[in-house]
């Protein structure tokens, strides 16, 4: 891995962490959603720095749309969407901070103290990667990919049918 790629990787990693932290530290909901978008885009940029071009672009495009939709829903559902009321939207602070830190530290320890062996130096070129990923999807992992498609269909039906009003709500009873 070249030095430039490594610097970019660390830079975008820090950006992802910073904006991930800002998501829960701001009281404005639009800022919160846009921070999550920035964090996810930084993860996409890290994919690009790790030479997974297809996944990086896919991540940035998908998250841009998903988080924009999320911003609309957040302003719809929050009691204090602009954050001007100064409401505290958190509970059980100490257990949750403790839980997050303990799990994070545990995973960092696993990452740091495991002997990962030799690192791969070269990756296939982007066109070869796309070809191989397509072959993987259409050959060995086809069943899994098809199941993912079916799951999307099931989730679409489930989401719409969950969100529909009950009959009694329409009648006003």
């Amino acid at each position: 891995m070249s030095t430039t790629a490594l610097i970019l990787l660390i830079f975008f990693g820090l950006v992802a962490i910073w904006f991930g932290w800002r998501v829960f530290m701001t009281s404005s909901m639009v800022r919160s959603a846009l921070s999550l978008l920035a964090s996810m885009a930084a993860i996409g940029a890290m994919f690009l720095a790790m030479e997974a071009e297809f996944l990086g672009i896919l991540q940035i495009m998908m998250m841009a749309t998903e988080m924009s939709i999320m911003a609309i829903f957040m302003t719809m559902f929050m009691m204090d969407p602009g954050g001007m009321g100064g409401m505290d939207m958190s509970h059980q602070k100490i257990p949750s901070i403790g839980g997050g830190m303990i799990v994070g530290a545990l995973v960092v320890c696993i990452a740091a103290f495991t002997a990962w062996g030799n690192m791969a130096l070269e990756v296939p070129l982007p066109d070869k990667q796309n070809y191989d990923l397509g072959m993987e999807l259409m050959k060995r992992s086809m069943m899994i990919f098809e199941s993912a498609g079916t799951t999307i269909l099931v989730a679409m039906i489930a989401a719409v049918s969950t969100a529909l009003p009950y009959k009694s709500d329409i009648d006003g009873n």
């Binding site: 990787l9 993860i43 958190s90 949750s96 960092v108």
Partner: peptide
């Protein structure tokens, strides 16, 4: 490099756990 990326991912995971438990 692998350790750096795994560490960044672990910190993001920890922040996510804080969000799930604390919000």
């Amino acid at each position: 490099e692998l350790t750096i990326v795994l560490t960044i991912a672990a910190i993001l995971f920890g922040i996510g756990i804080y969000g799930v438990l604390g919000q």
